[in-house]
Amino acid sequence: MCEAIIRVDSLTAAYDREVVIDDISFVINPGEVFVVLGGSGCGKSTLFKHLIGLYKPVAGTILIEGDDIARAEGDLRLRILRKIGVAYQSGALFGSMTLLQNIRLAMEEFTDLPDEAMTLLARMKLKLVGLGGFENYLPGEISGGMQKRAAIARAMALDPKILFLDEPSAGLDPVTSADLDALIKRLARTLGVTFVVVTHELPSIFAIADRVIMLDKRVKKIVAAGKPADLRDHSEDPRVRQFFNRESSV
């Protein structure tokens, strides 16, 4: 068994006094596509923001290659952040910059690559996500699906070891969503990076996930973990069955 790239131990997350995630632990292995799923309000986004270091946990640790992102400061924190790339649900591209400039930004700040190299590398990233030719477009000039792909290209700018994607297929049509799933699988295979994806889109989960964990709003814990097909076919837990079979709760 290889060393885990992310290790979450006894994580508890809360807003003020309201606990959202209660004492959960799991590991993510290098190179796998790991999906966090669950119904609305179960704490997926909260967990996501803890994993990328935006929020500090009430208790527990989040180790990225052995370093605790929640407690790291200064250079160590910067080193950990260099290992991760994040694509947000809305894309969060900088609206006043072209796609090329969006991707070049991190390169300009953190590498000594020549100007020509940064431009070529940024164009390659765009090509990789199927946006070759769109270098000089502003985010507002392209569709939502293209914005999500551009956000992934920006997240890959510094070749991180781990890519975090928040609801990548939310709000996309089925074809664009399937294209995005195929892209994630292709990037995982080509780049060898680890993907951590938060989603509740069932087709995407079955298309991309090597392993999933499922959070539950009521118990605030992980209620299922494993391969998605196994959970769908063999889980005895009614919450898991309800989720995978899209059963109504009323």
């Binding site: 164009r123 090509k127 769109f134 270098e135 000089n136 477009y137």
Partner: peptide
């Protein structure tokens, strides 16, 4: 992923 001539010129200058 990047055979020769794979990178098309930007469509908009």
């Amino acid at each position: 992923e990047f055979p020769p001539d794979a990178l098309e010129a930007p469509w908009r200058l």
